[in-house]
Every structure is written in C-alpha cells, then in structure tokens.
C-alpha cells in the first residue's frame, strides 16, 4: 500500500509574533520552526499503518515551503517515513494553491491512504487536506481520533463536540485529517535520525507545478484590539503571590 503524509512547518506558537512592515506577514528571522503539532499525529499514524502492513508498503512524507522545511521532512523520515518530497516554495499561498501544488506533485503516484493534520497551528485553515481530497476525487474524513485498518478498509472515529464521536467505515483510497490525541507521536531515536540522513528527499520547484491563482489574499495582519482588562503582575514571586491572594480575598473569591 502506498501511503502519503503531508506536513507543514510552523513557527513555535509560544513565540512573540511581529508583523513585517507592509503588514501582511510575520517577521520570521527570530522564530523557531517545528512540525505542526497536528501533523505529528498524522506522521505517527502513517508510520503505524506502514509497520502494520509490513513488506510492500511505502510511506512518503511531503512538505511545501522554503529551504527550512527540509527539517520537518527529516523529522518525519526519522520517525519512520521512507522518503520525502519537498515542494520548494517561497511565496505566500492560500490553501487552494497549496492543495493544488500537492495535487500536481502526487496525482500520478496512486497513493491509497493520505494523512494530514486536521489544521495548522499558525493559520488554522482546516482546508488543505479536504481540498486535496476533492482535487484527487477521493473520500476524506476529518478530525480522526481513532483509526483502524482492516483488510482493504478502515474503521475510524471522528470527534464531534463535547467528546461525542462518530463511527465510520470506508475503503481506500481515502484521506484522513488527524486530531490531537489520535496516538502518542514517537520521538525520533538517534539511530533512526542517522538512518534518516540516507533517505531520499525529492525536490520540486513550485513554479514547475503550475500553481493556480489564489482565491484569497491576506491584506492586513495586526494584534487583536485588547478587549482584555487583564492586570499584569510581575517581578518578585512572593510579593506577587501576596498581591494575588489579597485581590482574591478582596473579591471574596476565596
């Protein structure tokens, strides 16, 4: 079985984000990048499926972005993917363009199962996976919290509101977008990191994949207007604790 997992590299969400002059993108210089958290669950599920199927199954990881994105692909390779595809791209793309570029790169490769994260932590579109499935004309199930392969079919659970779940059964080819908690993503071990260095990463130029025009364009990026009335306490921890206790007592909260 040919399996694909699509991953995005995102800035660490704990970062302080500064908007570039021009006001439509963030300053990347001081940011640390990592694999989108949802995609780590997608990688883990893909590796588990490959391991379960054993001989004859092949797992490819794909990512799109500038040179730095190679690090995300290497991590997925160290977690157990067999090979990588890097669509080199420095432009800012909307989800339709990203899905179209991935589609162009993989449409002739007959992947039977595709995993993605359910959304990215940075922009949270929750669109790219579904758009890719639409372009490929295959079934897609989002927000997967339980995944089980049986024969040529899959039993999966989608997560709904309030912890309720929905049970679904479907056949390959299919795309699954993975929710947090689907599994426990493994840490790459040192031997596997070394092995991953020998795995092949195919580079494709985005321009060679004929990206379509964007359907949406970011026109401004700004901090939210502070509704917040938050009073900030900083400095000496003992004094801060005293002040907090006093405030809570004054309001009869404790």
């Amino acid at each position: 079985m040919k399996i694909l997992v699509c991953v995005k590299q995102v800035p660490d969400m704990e970062s302080r984000f500064q908007v570039q002059a021009g006001g439509t993108a963030i300053e990347e210089a001081d940011l640390a990048f990592r694999v989108n958290e949802y995609d780590e669950f997608a990688i883990e599920e893909a590796v588990r499926l490959k391991e379960k199927l054993g001989e004859g199954s092949e797992l490819t990881v794909l990512s799109l972005g500038p040179q730095r994105v190679a690090e995300a692909i290497k991590k997925a390779l160290a977690m157990g993917c067999d090979q990588g595809i890097h669509i080199l791209d420095t432009a800012s793309r909307d989800p339709y363009q990203v899905a179209s570029l991935i589609y162009q790169a993989v449409k002739d490769q007959d992947f039977e199962v595709i995993f993605t994260g359910m959304q990215s932590q940075d922009l949270g579109y929750a669109q790219t996976g579904l758009l890719l499935a639409e372009l490929l004309g295959i079934e897609a199930v989002t927000t997967v919290v339980s995944f089980c392969q049986e024969g040529d079919g899959f039993l999966v659970q989608r997560e709904l509101e309030g912890g309720q779940r929905m049970n679904l059964k479907l056949q390959a080819p299919a795309l699954f977008t993975c929710q947090l908690g689907l599994n426990q993503p493994r840490y790459p071990t040192l031997p596997n990191i070394m092995k991953a260095k020998k795995k092949k990463i195919t580079q494709l130029e985005a321009a060679s994949l004929a990206p379509p025009a964007a359907r949406s364009q970011t026109t401004s990026l700004r901090p939210p207007a502070k509704k917040g009335q938050a009073k900030f306490l900083e400095g000496d921890l003992g004094a801060m604790a005293d002040q907090l206790v006093a405030e809570l007592k004054a309001k009869s909260l404790i």
Partner: peptide, 20 residues
C-alpha cells in the same frame, strides 16, 4: 465538526474562497 468538514468541499464545488 460539521462545518469544517463540509465547508472546503462546498468551496471547491463553487470554486470559491473559504475563510475559516
């Protein structure tokens, strides 16, 4: 869970942009 699962499919059907 209903909306984010369907919206991109509908957007693609309409060849429309989606804002999430």
């Amino acid at each position: 869970s209903y909306g984010w699962d369907l919206a991109p499919r509908v957007a693609q059907g309409l060849e429309a942009a989606q804002l999430s």
